[in-house]
Design a protein around this nucleic acid. Sequence first.
DNA 1: AACAGTCTCAACCGCCTCGAG
DNA 2: TCTCGAGGCGGTTGAGACTGT
Length: 358
Amino acid sequence: MMQGNPFVVLPCVNSIKLSNAQNETKKMSKGQCYNGEGLKKGTWSAEEDEKLISYIRDHGEGGWRNIPEKAGLKRCGKSCRLRWVNYLRQNIKRGNFSDEEEQIIIMLHASRGNKWSDIAKHLPERTDSEIKNHWHTHLKKRLIKNGIDPVTHLPLVSSDSSPAEPKEFDPQEEFNAEKHWPQGSSTSPVSLDLPSSSFNNPITEITRDETPLDNRSLSCKKRFERSSLLNKVAASASSFRNFLSTSVEGTLRSPTPSSSLPNPLSEHMFDANEDLSTSIDLSIPHNEFSQYLEHFNNNEDESENIGGYNQTLLISDVPSSLVYVDMTNCGDITGWSSYIPEHTSFLYEKEQDYYKFF
DNA sequence: AACAGTCTCAACCGCCTCGAG
DNA sequence: TCTCGAGGCGGTTGAGACTGT
């Protein structure tokens, strides 16, 4: 960790790339700072920071190319922009990432890949650069350690194992197996070993079962899992790949679906509700999603009643046109909805058993 | 105490996108 | 429609801090 004083002016170790005379008369080539002599590189000094802050305070952002000269800085415009955007501007949250933030990053990375700026939009106080660094230095390693490919977010396949064959799903068997999930197993669900201050039992899984959804939808939902909602979603994120960005990740609804919704899937859904009636009541008036998670994890009775776990329906292998989203009866899920702003009211196409319960 | 290896993250590099002309 | 340049983005680097021996 960089513990040094960020304001110490360090000698410029790297050779400064000086633009030649021709470059000074030409527009800069792609991506290069071009205004020539004496460009400083390396760590910014407090004096430089103050100059940049002062200038932007008076003149606003933009026109980065001209800012160095106007602000009296011997930096290239891109360097100024980077310094401002990542470190000097207001409302930047520094320091350790919370569990919730990490979950969000993992989840979004699974669906969007290394789109750091995109991911950063869901964590408004974090910069893409910080998220990127945190991913490379912490989260990626953690996933690998727990047997998850940080690129695909699928379990790493050991060299001596054959591809998993689909098997008939047995909820009881899987439930029992989950009690002793070996980390990194090629045949068992994988624990993400996520840090847990708010998640009492951060067991998560990535199912390798490729059984067609319609063979397991209703039976699977009887399974009991105590991992947190978001943990669950994070672990399932691989199944949302190519899906999350244009749709929603699951159905979040209260135990009492709205009968007013013109939903052609209602029959199927309400059949499911005979089990869904034991689901978590998202109308619990928690102000923040994190509070909801905490409440959920601290409430044994409630967590044990998640027979269907319907709020984490895994909609996998489903064309985006088949997304069903029903946020209408959700309680306060502020945190969630802000993380996944693509949520829309509801959308459906055809009647199909496309819910995957687990 | 000294050294080597590892970790962290600020900063840089170069490519891409998009809007203006 | 094309060209150009500013801004944006993601990958990479390397200085300094930390940790182990």
